[in-house]
């Protein structure tokens, strides 16, 4: 048991543990031994306009994609809940299908579709493409929390005179908020880390962080690369931590009922 856990951890962590300290390298090569510890490469990233632009682009695209995914995935989940059982199964399969399509296929398809619309290289194309991948994630997590909600609560609100929108705003949304937040975090992280589709759709102006990283990797091997990678990892880790907290805070709510 301890051995298998240890092996698993080693397998997952060791490569990171080896690479990450290079971010603090005093020298300018991506190699051991470190030439003294320093934060100079963090400074280099923060004073390098192309890196900053890529970071801003990534946030812009990820936030836009998350918002769009929340609306589309949330509505899809609510609609699926309101459908009969057989219809709901079919809808479920349709709404999660973007997750099953290989991203390279999706990327090529979107590339040609957006080319025809003249959208290639725009923020909008990236936002739509990433929302397409994020919506199923929102859909699944919102649907799960809706399923955990006793149907009498909405009926009670209806019997008390609340319209459909009022019921959603005052009863359903507050009680399924953990589901929406979970979906939002998944969608955000997905967009922030996404490479394949972005590779097809970005222009130099809309280059996202993973693409910038990819490009930098080809051009010159500098510790700035590792600094950016480390920051990406930390951000993802932070969001996953938030997810775990969400899950814990959502649990007692389900028990009340």
């Amino acid at each position: 048991m301890a051995l298998s856990v240890g092996f698993g951890l080693a397998f997952l962590i060791v490569p990171l543990a080896i690479v990450m300290p290079l971010a603090f390298n005093g020298g300018s090569y991506l190699s051991y031994p470190l030439e003294g510890l320093s934060l100079r490469w963090f400074g280099a990233v923060l004073h390098n306009p192309p890196w900053l632009a890529a970071i801003a682009n990534s946030f812009r695209v990820a936030l836009g994609a998350t918002a769009l995914a929340l609306v589309v995935g949330g509505l899809a989940a609510i609609g699926t809940m309101a459908s009969r059982r057989l219809t709901a199964i079919v809808l479920w399969a349709l709404f999660v299908s973007p997750l099953a399509v290989p991203s390279i296929v999706m990327a090529v398809a979107l590339y040609f579709a957006f080319a025809r619309l003249g959208l290639n290289g725009t923020y909008l194309s990236l936002v739509i493409a990433h929302a397409l991948l994020g919506a199923p994630l929102v859909f699944v997590s919102v649907l799960n929390s809706l399923r955990g909600l006793p149907p009498e609560l909405e009926q009670a609100a209806a019997s008390l005179g609340a319209s459909r929108w009022m019921r959603f705003r005052t009863v359903i949304l507050p009680l399924t908020l953990p589901g929406f937040l979970t979906g939002a975090i998944f969608a955000f992280v997905m967009s922030f880390d996404e490479v394949v589709i972005a590779l097809f759709l970005v222009s130099p102006e809309t280059q996202t962080l993973p693409i910038a990283l990819f490009a930098a990797l080809r051009d010159r091997l500098e510790p700035t690369l590792v600094v950016v990678a480390l920051s990406l990892t930390l951000l993802s880790g932070l969001l996953i931590f938030a997810l775990a907290r969400l899950r814990r805070s959502a649990a007692p709510l389900g028990k009340d009922q």
């Binding site: 006793p150 009498e152 609560l153 009926q155 009670a156 609100a157 009863v171 507050p174 009680l175 709510l253 009340d256 009922q257």
Partner: peptide, 9 residues
């Protein structure tokens, strides 16, 4: 309602 259906939040 049978289970009261009070709003838990």
């Amino acid at each position: 309602f049978q289970g009261y259906a009070l709003f838990p939040h």
